[in-house]
C-alpha cells in the first residue's frame, strides 16, 4: 500500500491525474512540507503585548514565545501610534534580545588584565559593601556655612532613559535615601 501512495504522490503521475496543472507548475509539484506550511506565530505558546525599546516614538510590538524562547517580534497593528509598523531597529528586536547576549557576571579586579567569573550574589554583596564604604568615606553633613547637605559626593550614577519608569523610580528613591545626588541620564546629553 505504501508503494501505491508513493507512486501516486510522484508529481509526474500527479501531472497526469490533475490535468488542471499538467504543466507541473502548481499544485502537482507542491511538496508535503509546502502543503503543511504555517507561520510560526500561529504555533507560538503565547503572544505578549510590548513596546519597542529603541526610540521614543513608542511603537507597539507583539512578542511571540515558544518553549520559553522569543521566536518573533513584530509590530502591533492595534497601536494607534505605529499601526503595526516598525523601523529597521524595531524590526531587529528579536536579534537584540537573542543575539550575543552577555549572561554571566564579569568581574575585573583593580589593575587586573583579564575578566574573571563572579557569581551574582557575591557580586551584589560586594557592590553593597562598596556603596556603604564609599558613602561613609565621602559623607558631607553640612556645607561651609553650616547649611544641611546630608549627602555623599563619592557616588555617581548615569543612565535611565532606556529603563522603565519603575526602575528610574527605585533608583532615584534608593540613591536619595543614600544621599547620593550625582544622578544623571541621557536627558542631559
Amino acid at each position: 500500500m505504501k508503494m501505491r501512495k508513493l507512486i501516486a504522490s510522484w508529481p509526474a503521475v500527479r501531472q497526469a491525474t490533475n490535468l488542471a496543472d499538467w504543466r507541473g507548475m502548481g499544485r502537482t509539484v507542491q511538496s508535503e512540507r509546502s502543503a503543511s506550511l504555517e507561520p510560526r506565530t500561529d504555533t507560538a505558546d503565547s503572544v505578549v503585548r510590548s513596546i519597542c525599546p529603541y526610540c521614543a516614538v513608542g511603537c507597539g510590538q507583539r512578542v511571540f514565545v515558544k518553549g520559553g524562547k522569543v521566536t518573533q517580534i513584530e509590530g502591533d497593528p492595534a497601536s494607534p501610534i505605529s499601526r503595526g509598523r516598525l523601523c529597521p531597529k524595531g524590526s531587529a528586536s528579536k536579534q537584540l534580545v537573542t543575539h550575543g547576549r552577555l549572561s554571566k557576571v564579569r568581574y575585573r579586579r583593580p589593575h587586573g588584565t583579564e575578566w574573571e567569573d563572579l557569581d551574582l550574589d557575591t557580586a551584589m554583596d560586594m557592590i553593597a559593601d562598596r556603596v556603604i564604604k564609599t558613602r561613609a568615606e565621602t559623607w558631607q553633613d553640612v556645607d561651609e556655612n553650616g547649611d544641611r547637605l546630608s549627602r555623599t559626593m563619592g557616588i555617581a550614577s548615569l543612565g535611565g532613559a532606556t529603563l522603565d519608569n519603575e526602575e528610574n523610580y527605585l533608583m532615584k528613591k534608593l540613591y536619595t535615601a543614600l544621599g547620593a545626588i550625582q544622578i544623571e541620564n541621557q536627558a542631559r546629553i
Binding site: 529603541y54 521614543a56 535611565g160 532613559a161 528610574n168 544622578i183 541620564n185 536627558a187
Partner: peptide
C-alpha cells in the same frame, strides 16, 4: 530613547 521623557518625569537627574 524609549523612556527619556520618563527619565525626566521620574528623574534620574
Amino acid at each position: 530613547h524609549a523612556s527619556i521623557q520618563g527619565s525626566t518625569d521620574i528623574p534620574t537627574l
